[in-house]
Amino acid sequence: MSALDRHGVERRTGVSWRGAVGVWAVVGGIMLAVALAGSLVAPYDPAGLVGKSFLLPGPDHWFGTDSLGRDVLSRVLAGGRTAVLLAVAAIVVAEAVGCVIGLLAGYRGGLVDAVLMRANDVLLAFPALLLVLVLAAGLGPGTVVLVVGVAVVNIPGIARLARAATLGVATTGYVESAVVRGEGTAAILRREILPNIAPTIVADAGVRFAGAFLIIAGLNFLGIGIQPPAPDWATMIAENRSYITLQPWTVIAPTACIALFAISVNIVGEAVARRRSRGRA
C-alpha cells in the first residue's frame, strides 16, 4: 500500500473544501476519543462471553453479538486503541531514527547521504505491505512486526525530509556562527538545527501517522499483526467476514470506525499541511 506516497502527493494537490474540514475535525476528534478511551464506557467486557452467538442488534446489545457471544459495541469501543498506539509507536521510532540519519546526512553529506538515497530507492521498489509480509514470514506475526515493519517503511522518507530541511538551515548565519564559536556537531544539530526543522518534521509526522494506521489496519486484517483476543477494528472485519450474512453488524461497526477515522485524519491532515504551505508562501 503506497498510502505514504499518496499522502505525500495529496499535500501538493489539495482541494479547497473549507467548510467540511471543521465537520471532519469534530468527527476525527470523536473517533480519536473513541479509539483511546472507548473501552472506559464499554457496557461489557470486550472479551466477555456475554450472550448467545450471532445475536442481532437489540436493547441489551446495541450492535448484537459475535461468533463467541461477545458484545460487538464493547469490542468496537475497545478496538481502536492498540492500532492507533502502534501507529504512533511506529512513527515515533521512525522519526527518531530517520531524523538522526537525515540530520547527519544533511549536515555532513558524503557517505551517509549516498547510502540514504540508495536505501530510499530500494524501499520504493517494494510495496510496503509486501515488505512487512516478508518480515512477518521471518519474525512471525505480532505487534513487533507491525512497529518494526512500519518504521522501516517510513525511515528513508523521513530521513530525506530531515536532510532537505537541514540543508536549508545549515547554511544560515546562526549555524555558521555556532560553528565559528567552535561548538560540536551534536550540539549544533541539537540546539541550532533541530528546533528549526521541527515544525516541518511534525507536520509530516501527522500525515505519516495516517499512512501508518492504514498499513497496520491492513496487516491486522491479514492476520499478521494484533492477535486475538485483543479487540481490533481490522481484525474484527477479518474474523467476522465469514459471518457477514448471519450478523452484518459485526462487520458494519468496525468498518465504519476505520472509514471515519481514516477519512477525518486524512482531511484534517491535508488542511493543516495546506495551511502551512500557504503560510510559508
Binding site: M1, R6, E10, V15, W17, A20, A210, L214, A217, G218, F221, A234, I237, A238, R241, I244, T245, P248, V251, I252, T255, I258, A259, A262, I263, V265, N266, I267, E270
Partner: peptide, 29 residues
C-alpha cells in the same frame, strides 16, 4: 468539486473497508 470531495474521502479508506462495504451493499443487502 464533487469528484474532489469523493476522491479525497476515498483515498483515505483502506481497500478491505471499501470491499467490506461493497459486500454489505451488493452481496448482503
Amino acid at each position: 468539486r464533487a469528484a474532489a470531495g469523493v476522491s479525497l474521502t476515498l483515498t483515505a479508506v483502506p481497500e478491505f473497508v471499501v470491499g467490506a462495504l461493497l459486500v454489505l451493499a451488493l452481496a448482503v443487502y
